[in-house]
């Protein structure tokens, strides 16, 4: 979900990150409150229009987000077919699909920095109890940064093991991966120090 940002100048791109996240939250709440098929279908069409027509995202970008949940959606529909009725099933499935797509549109049109800034803003009230919003924001950004890095290292280890004849050993992957991640984390800590991450708390005005 991290490499998702697609630079652009559309209305959706330019909308404030906070507004987009608020709209996402409102959509989620609304769709669960009003569980009617015509509302859900209208929302789905609206989200697709915003993503494909207004933001001009390639369909592949949205599809990439739906693909991992495809099985879940099918399962959910089958579950409803067996236990409730097709209409309820359709509402449940389309609702989830709409939300996944809406989240994809938001992440594809919003810079990580902007999303992180919203997180920091939301956390500001917690400063009084000692939460450092800038720190949490940095953690969010770093998590997004290191998911692909760790995934890539895992893939490399898997290849190395496969090259030596191992196959599908999940546990065998874990130990070397853990060692690499720990090494990475140690250097990362030093790099944060070297780049002045420590300066942050010192510069924030402390509240009485």
């Amino acid at each position: 979900m991290l490499s998702l940002y697609r630079p652009g100048t559309s209305l959706v791109h330019r909308a404030r990150a906070g507004l987009k996240l608020a709209a996402l939250a409102a959509l989620g709440t609304g769709l669960f409150a009003v569980a009617r098929i015509e509302v859900v279908v209208a929302a789905l069409i609206g989200v697709l229009a915003a993503g494909l027509l207004v933001a001009r995202l390639p369909a592949g970008v949205l599809w990439a987000q739906v693909r991992p949940v495809w099985l879940l959606l099918t399962g959910l529909f089958v579950f409803h077919l067996l236990l409730t009725d097709p209409l309820t099933g359709a509402v449940a499935v389309l609702r989830l699909l709409t939300l996944v797509l809406a989240a994809a549109v938001v992440t594809a049109t919003t810079r990580v920095t902007a999303l992180v800034a919203v997180v920091e803003w939301l956390l500001r009230p917690l400063e009084v109890v000692g939460v450092r919003p800038a720190r949490v924001g940095l953690m969010v950004a770093m998590t997004l940064r290191f998911i692909p890095v760790v995934a890539e290292r895992a893939a490399r280890i898997r290849e190395a093991q496969a090259a030596r004849g191992a196959s599908g050993m999940r546990l065998g992957l874990l130990v070397p991966l853990l060692i690499q991640v720990l090494q990475l984390a140690a250097t990362l800590g030093e790099a944060l120090d070297a780049r002045g991450a420590d300066d942050v708390p010192a510069r924030r005005p402390r509240r009485a």
């Binding site: 770093m142 250097t187 990362l188 070297a194």
Partner: peptide, 29 residues
């Protein structure tokens, strides 16, 4: 004194290029 490490992956902390370059400056306020 700036420091550049052997493994670039371990010293890039932000997901995208420009954001990462800005990191140290943000820290300095």
């Amino acid at each position: 004194v700036g420091f550049v490490f052997q493994d670039p992956d371990a010293q890039i902390v932000h997901p995208t290029v420009a954001e990462d370059v800005a990191f140290g400056l943000t820290n300095q306020g």
